[in-house]
Design a binder for these strands. Structure first.
Length: 258
DNA sequence: ATGGTGGAGTGTCCA
């Protein structure tokens, strides 16, 4: 089973890239974030014509998540159901080929003194509650998405200078670590231990960000131990960030011997 | 240099 995650930064703006990439890579599952489209306008037929089922939940202008899969998804649910706002456009879960997949778009947070950042920390806390409520780390489970946190110093281009950034703030890293400690293995790191400069996001606003590799590893595929054991490969497709009309993120892929 | 670019969708918010 081949699984990918991609923050599209508008799915409708990324159709040419998605058509080429899905045609070439044919993942069994593709998790999308920041689809930026309300449900009636989601390009459902585009995925169907490429041979994919797709489930999605969006809202006006921002956020939005989707799961595209070759096999028909079951047990499709949206949002956090652990008290507080469900935030349906930031979490979708579906079971594909017997494997439950949770796809999330964690709030970015704007700045450490913003209410958005408090909401981000609370959101990660509720994600941990959600896992406690619905799943067991002893069973196969995937958590994929734009987690909007770089876990370690090697996951950002300037760990000293970025300590106050909401995606590398100690409080954000601690909140993410509580989610990971529920029982996940970061399958990219499993296959690339200690390797710096492996990023999934390069800011549009930074001149020559890709060429200079001024990036962040904020997109992740995490698996529970019984599933992580079957992970044979994980890689980042940097070429997709180099295309004519790229997202500011690129694809992260993990392959399992299932 | 407290900027910069991109996307959604009309006002600016969000990243």
């Amino acid at each position: 089973m081949k699984v990918a995650t991609f923050n599209a930064n508008s799915v409708r703006s990324r159709l040419p890239l998605l058509e080429a990439w899905l045609g070439r890579e044919r993942p069994d599952v593709l998790c999308l974030q920041e689809t930026k489209v309300q449900d009636p306008d989601f390009p459902e037929r585009f995925f169907r014509e490429l041979g994919y089922h797709v489930v999605f939940r969006g809202q006006k202008a921002h956020a939005g998540v989707a799961i595209a899969s070759l096999a028909e998804p079951t047990d499709v649910r949206f949002g956090l159901d652990v008290g507080g706002p469900p935030d349906e456009a930031r979490l979708v879960r579906a079971t594909v080929g017997g494997i439950p997949v949770v796809n999330v778009y964690v709030p970015q947070g704007q700045s450490p003194d913003s209410p958005h950042f408090a909401y981000k920390l609370e959101w990660l806390g509720r994600l941990r509650d959600y896992l406690d409520r619905h799943f067991s780390p002893r069973e196969p489970l995937l958590l994929c998405g734009d987690l909007n946190v770089a876990p370690e110093e090697i996951d950002v281009h300037d760990p000293k200078g970025l300590r106050d950034h909401v995606d590398f703030h100690p409080a954000a890293r601690a909140a993410l670590e509580r989610v990971r400690a529920w029982g996940f293995v970061d399958v990219f790191r499993l296959h690339h231990p200690g390797e710096p400069g492996q990023y999934t996001f390069w800011d549009y606003r930074v001149r020559g960000a890709l060429e200079r590799n001024v990036g962040w590893r904020v997109d992740h595929i995490w698996a529970t131990p019984p599933l992580a054991e079957t992970c044979v490969r994980s890689w980042i497709d940097r070429e997709a960030r180099r295309t004519e009309k790229p997202s500011d993120h690129t694809f992260l892929v993990a392959e399992f011997s299932l």
